[in-house]
Design a protein around this nucleic acid. Structure first.
Lengths: 202, 202
DNA sequence: GTCTATATAAAGATAGAC
DNA sequence: GTCTATCTTTATATAGAC
């Protein structure tokens, strides 16, 4: 708790690395970037992470996924009993965090890790994030709150949908990301009132 | 048209680069990767692209965006008059191509280019891809085929949604990506039958 | 148009002082 | 715990032969 807590140096390295990795991906971030952002030289990182860049990245990703999982669970709980509330809570949480960019993670970053480490992280994403979303949709489906649907597909779709809002230039669009997230969730829940027979009948 | 068409060497370089850049991103692909994939040395690339990696990448991205725009327009036209048909055509096209990963492009890859080049490419994405999707939704909205919605937001959401299917492991899920795309489109169009008053009434 | 060879720069990693 | 070298590898880029 002292102004510069020496025992927490490792945590500060993780914070710096997470910020940079999340923004630019594994290959675009150097150990010197990570170190200099917190006033260290890159050599110091090897004291905390003897395994070098790969070990640091793997730990960053695992901590990131776990925090996302915990935050998501808490946010959905706080969203109240309705599925809409839970999904809005999930959106608020996801948009409060730096983008996870799961596509890049799966397609690019994880290829830099040993296959077992990559698999382990993907399993964590599924277990701690996708599964939680999926469970809530399944529960709503079982209780009759929503109609027939594929909860697994919807969970992945919702995640991709909300995450894609991170790349919307808010300054140009002039709308809050959370407001856009809520609107997209309502579209999922209620649709956009498509008239099947429109062309036949007009 | 000869088996090895010398005048088309530049095009083959672009093809190789596009394949690799699309899969792993700017920083994770080396000029040696691109060259050796087509039986050249990296030095040969400088004959076709004197500006080096950046020039090659910028040209690849521009060609990629233009092809996506043209393919999207053709696929939506072929989808027939209904919005559902057009969107399914769009999904079929997007899923037939390597992932564009617009989030990575916007958040990572474009930062490696000069700002004007980056802006130009983002403008092209908007003009040739998002705007086309948006126009179709707007037209359907104007004709009464669908109800009130935000066409711009929906266009971006649909793109993110369909693109995210690229990272679904088909072998595990056991479903065709196009089938999943169609289901998600139907969710957008018709919703998942959310009962607003479920909790109050049960 | 493509090659070999080389220059230059950047990044991961290690050794040893403090 | 962190630093200052230093080593090694890898990548972009260029020069000049063919």
């Amino acid at each position: 708790m002292s102004p510069v807590d020496p025992v927490d140096a490792r945590g500060r390295v993780l914070d710096s690395a997470e910020l940079l990795f999340a923004g630019k991906g594994f290959d675009s971030v150097t150990l010197r970037d990570i170190a200099s952002a917190i006033g260290l030289t890159h050599a110091a990182l090897y004291y905390h992470f003897p395994g070098g860049k790969e070990e640091l990245f793997a730990e960053v990703m695992e901590r990131n996924i776990r925090r996302h999982g915990a935050g998501l669970a808490a946010a959905m709980l706080a969203g109240g009993p309705s599925l809409r509330g839970k999904l809005r809570g999930a959106a608020a949480w996801l948009l409060s965090q730096p983008p996870m960019d799961l596509i890049r993670m799966a397609e690019t970053d994880l290829k830099a890790l040993p296959p077992e480490a990559a698999r382990r992280l993907m399993d964590l994403v599924y277990e701690l994030i996708l599964r939680k979303l999926q469970s809530e949709i399944e529960a709503a489906r079982a209780s009759g709150e929503v109609g027939a649907c594929d909860p697994g597909l919807l969970a992945g779709g919702l995640l991709g949908l909300v995450e894609s809002l991170h790349s919307v230039p808010v300054a140009i669009v002039g709308r809050d990301r959370y407001a856009m997230g809520c609107e997209l969730i309502d579209v999922i829940l209620k649709g956009i009132d498509y008239r099947e027979e429109h062309h036949a009948g007009s």
